[in-house]
């Protein structure tokens, strides 16, 4: 049985690269959402307003997280991938993320 568990399709590497590119494109969206979340917090004068120290820890925490994620993504993204996708048959021609 275990022999049948080999890779089901061959474009594994380029598939992974395309998904990583998707992830890279989603990074600013994730960052914007996380950075906008504090707007939902109660503000000065309302009950349960968080102190500035908590806000600082949250925002700089998110900032660090984004930095780490961006670093990981740029590490994983293959710089030569650009050229590689073009030579490939357009297996995912309908993929809107590749429109640019």
């Amino acid at each position: 049985m275990s022999e049948r568990r080999g890779p089901l399709f061959l474009g594994r590497v380029s598939y992974r690269q395309r998904r990583l590119a998707d992830a890279a494109r989603l990074m600013p969206v994730l960052g914007a959402i996380l950075m906008a979340l504090p707007l939902l917090w109660p503000r000065a004068g309302e009950a349960g307003t968080p102190p500035t120290s908590v806000a600082m820890i949250y925002i700089f925490g998110v900032w660090t997280l984004l930095t780490v994620l961006a670093a990981l993504l740029s590490h994983w993204l293959d710089p030569t991938f650009d050229a590689a996708t073009r030579e490939e048959p357009p297996a995912e021609a309908g993929d809107p993320a590749r429109g640019d």
Binding site: A21, A24, R25, M27, P28, V29, G31, A32, M35, W63, L66, T67, L69, A70
Partner: peptide, 8 residues
């Protein structure tokens, strides 16, 4: 920061 994180 968001622009650079979204460099892609």
């Amino acid at each position: 920061s968001l622009v650079m994180v979204g460099w892609f």
